[in-house]
Each structure stands twice: as C-alpha cells, then as structure tokens.
C-alpha cells in the first residue's frame, strides 16, 4: 500500500518534471513528456532490477484513474459545441472517414507486410489516442503496452510530418488541416497545433476525442467478430 503510493507519486512527479523539461526545450514533438517519463521509469526498473509485474501492481491506482480521465474527455467535445452545431455533419464525416482510413490502412499494410497478428492488432488502434487505446485493449484483452506505445509514437511522427505534408500539397484551409492533424496524430499533434493556433487546436482536440470515442465503440466489435 505504502509502496504503491510511493511509486504512483514518483510517476506523477516524473511526469511533472518531464513536462517542465519539454517546456524548457520549446515543446518539440519528439520530447513527449509521456515518452520521457516511460523511458525514465523503464530505466529505473532495469537499474534496480524490479520485475515489470511489481511495477504493474504498484501503479494499479494510476491505471484505474485512466477510466475516469477518459470520461472527463467529454469536456473537450462540449467545449466545441458551437462548432459542432454549425459544421457538425462535415466534421463527423471527415473524422469517421479519416478514422476508417487510419484503421483500414494500418491493418491492411500489416497484413501486406506479413506482420504478426498481435502487431496487427496493436497497429489497428494507432490512429487512436493512448487513453482510449488502453481502454480498448483492456476491454478486449489486446496488447496494451505495445498498442499504447505505437499510438504515442504515431502522434510524434504525425506532429513532425503532417504539417510538412499539408504545406507540400498546398492544403491551406485551417479547419481541414486541424482535423487531419487531430485524427492522424491525436494528442501530440494537437498540443503542437494548440501552441501555434489555439482555435485550430480546439478543433484538432475535438477530432481526436471523437476518433477515440468512435474507435472505442466500434473496434472491439470488429476484433470480437474476427477473433
């Protein structure tokens, strides 16, 4: 009990430190606080020779709180209700279509390259933000750690490359760019955009929460019917 509280406090403190460090570096996408904290935790576990099972047991309270935090994401959708009222149909169509392309292209390419079925399952949620990924994989018994890592990595890759792609292809519409970044690169991409353009960042946030919600309701059913 005391050990668990200590480990959880250490993770929270580590995350606060990583967030501070990321800010000092100017918030580059590759300095994701989540990634830095996880790497530091893994290094400490390896150095102290602590088995992963013990760390898992000690951090159970944090894992549990992820559920309530996902519930709280409703605030993001509600915060954009004006926008939804005005352009809801177009936003929902773009998010649904984009999420479907994300799911289909990842699963299809995994099959094409002959990747392991566990990898294909983890890749299927790469276009979903990590909190939803953990929730989906927990509910379906999927590869939680692997899928969460691929999701965070996707966010970093997207924040680095998607704005460049849009520039190259001369896609200038602010809303289209925000939705594309939000769906494809979820939290990391959205934070990157919010620092440059808070209004567009709000739309990107709406896009990634809707994508996650959609995936949470649909992906388990797909895996359930295939598996």
């Amino acid at each position: 009990m005391i050990v668990s509280a200590g480990v959880c406090a250490a993770v929270l403190l580590g995350f606060a430190g990583a967030r501070w460090l990321s800010g000092r570096l100017g918030h580059p996408p590759w300095a994701s606080p989540v990634l830095m904290t996880a790497l530091a935790a893994a290094a400490v576990l390896a150095a102290a020779n602590v088995p992963l099972v013990q760390f898992d047991a000690a951090t159970r309270p944090l894992r549990w709180l992820l559920g309530p935090a996902v519930v709280a994401l409703a605030l993001v959708i509600e915060g954009n209700r004006q926008l939804l009222r005005r352009r809801g149909a177009a936003i929902l169509l773009a998010v649904t279509g984009g999420a479907a392309v994300g799911f289909g292209s990842a699963v299809g390419m995994a099959r094409l390259l002959g990747l392991d079925s566990v990898l294909a399952q983890a890749l299927s949620t790469k276009t979903v933000t990590a909190p939803f990924v953990v929730a989906i994989m927990t509910a379906t018994g999927g590869p939680i750690g692997l899928a969460a890592a691929l999701s965070v990595l996707t966010g970093v890759i997207g924040a680095l490359l998607v704005p460049w792609l849009f520039d190259r292809l001369r896609i200038g519409d602010e809303s289209a760019r925000a939705l594309g970044l939000g769906v494809s690169s979820h939290i990391v991409g959205t934070e990157w955009l919010t620092r440059r353009n808070p209004r567009a960042g709000g739309l990107a946030a709406l896009a990634f929460v809707l994508t996650g919600l959609l995936a949470a309701l649909v992906v388990p059913l797909i895996w359930g019917s295939v598996g």
Partner: peptide
C-alpha cells in the same frame, strides 16, 4: 498523460 505511463 501521467496515467498512460504505466501502460507504456
């Protein structure tokens, strides 16, 4: 973000 760390 901190709550995802254990999974990662």
């Amino acid at each position: 973000g901190a709550l995802i760390v254990p999974a990662l």
